[in-house]
Every structure is written in structure tokens, then in C-alpha cells.
Nucleic acid binder design. Structure first.
Length: 216
DNA sequence: AGGCCGATGCTCT
DNA sequence: GAGCATCGGCCTC
């Protein structure tokens, strides 16, 4: 693949989607192993689609044992997908203007999700910059370095909440391909070194090292 | 390089 | 009514 040539279609065919069994495991394990995986966003009528990014930062959120989790006090209208089938998306709206994207883990009835916090752009940077609109962002590495930047850059909003990434339930009737998929690292990718730190932006359970970040 | 703060509206108590 | 799983701008060191 020629990663810097935006005029040629990205060769996404070698990317293998992660199976449901990948997500149906302990949440911290999934969060760690998602570092280095690819997030692919197919968009109709976009020249450089699919947008392809590589995940660099995640956080694990669990259920009743995790005071920082939306699921800490049990199921509600907002968090119910966290208790649903692993491999579904949990997207929520926060701070009055931002969306955050999670992938559901564990097992049906057991709450868990991995927040995708940051990624590096691989393909479709022109469109990513367009979706990020606002200002001139000098460096590509600053396009997706936050959970709400990531969803804005990939045009992911509440309409994707509950989307099953494995069955592709919710895909448009006229589309044979997934709008969003998570894929394994490629064979030649170097496995990243990973740091563990407290999670960002929370006030409870700050002692847990449940943030996973690719070392610079 | 790091801290503070306003924007802006939903969720849960 | 309080508290956000944030961002970007502006301020000070």
C-alpha cells in the first residue's frame, strides 16, 4: 500500500475484520489489543473513501465494579448497549456538543466497553481534514488525538449507537459493505509498545490504570 | 508546556 | 441542579 498517495484507492482488501470472539473477552484485554488495529470508515460519494486510521489510544470501562463507568449504576436508556452483545458500538453525546465511540465487550448481560480515544490517520486525510473543518491543523498527528476529534473526523454520531460491527446490522440497503469496521493489524505491522495510565477526564476510580496508549 | 475556562445540552438524582 | 469518558483558545510561567 502506498500510504502517502491520496490519488490511488487504499488497498483495504487485506484488512481482516475482527471477529465477535475478539470483543467477547475481558474489557482491559480488549482495550490493550485494540491498539494498532485499524478502524475503517466507508463513505458513499467520497473520493478517498474508505477513511482508514490506526488506533493509538483506548480506555476500558466496565460495570458495577467501575465507578467511572456509565454502567456503574446499572442499565439506563443511554447505556443499555453496554450490556448488549459484544462487538456492537456504544456512541454517546457529551458536553453538549461531542460524540464518543466505544466498542462493547464482555458478554450479553455483563457491561463493558472500550472507548476509542485516539488514532493516527492512514488514508483519506483530505476528507478527515474536511470533517474536522474548524482551523488549520498543522500536523496530521493532531487530527485524531482525542475521542471527540476522532468521531468528528470519521463522521460518527448517535445514529451509529447499537450498530453491530460483526453482522453489519443497520447498513444501508443499497450498500454491500460495512460503513464501519475494525480490522486486525497487518502482518508486516510492528506491534506497538503500550503504556498504561489512569483514564482521562474522570473523577472516580482514578487509581485504575485502564488507559492504553501506544508509546511515542 | 501547562492550567484555566467557556461553550452547550443531555442524563441522572 | 449537578455533572459530565471534550475541545480549543487564551493566559501565565
Amino acid at each position: 500500500m502506498s500510504k502517502s498517495d491520496e490519488s490511488t484507492p487504499f488497498q483495504y482488501s487485506p484488512l481482516q475484520p475482527l471477529a465477535r470472539a475478539f470483543f467477547a473477552r475481558e474489557t482491559c484485554l480488549v482495550a490493550e489489543q485494540l491498539i494498532g488495529c485499524y478502524l475503517v470508515r466507508h463513505l458513499p460519494n467520497i473520493a478517498d473513501s474508505p477513511l482508514v486510521v490506526r488506533i493509538t489510544e483506548t480506555e476500558a470501562y466496565k460495570g458495577e465494579e467501575d465507578a467511572a463507568s456509565h454502567a456503574f449504576r446499572g442499565p439506563t436508556a443511554r447505556n443499555q448497549v453496554m450490556f448488549d452483545t459484544p462487538g456492537k458500538l456504544y456512541v454517546y453525546f457529551t458536553y453538549g456538543m461531542h460524540y464518543c465511540m466505544n466498542i462493547v465487550t464482555e458478554a450479553p448481560g455483563i457491561a463493558g466497553a472500550v472507548l476509542i480515544r485516539a488514532a493516527e490517520p492512514i488514508h483519506g486525510i483530505a476528507t478527515i481534514r474536511q470533517f474536522r473543518s474548524n482551523k488549520t491543523i498543522p500536523h496530521d498527528r493532531d487530527l485524531l488525538n482525542g475521542p471527540a476529534k476522532l468521531t468528528q473526523a470519521l463522521a460518527i454520531d448517535l445514529s451509529f449507537n447499537g450498530l453491530d460491527l460483526i453482522t453489519n446490522e443497520n447498513r444501508p440497503a443499497d450498500s454491500a459493505i460495512a460503513q464501519i469496521s475494525l480490522c486486525q493489524p497487518l502482518a508486516h505491522d510492528i506491534p506497538p509498545a503500550i503504556e498504561r495510565t489512569p483514564r482521562i477526564g474522570i473523577s472516580k476510580a482514578t487509581e485504575l490504570l485502564w488507559r492504553y496508549k501506544k508509546s511515542p
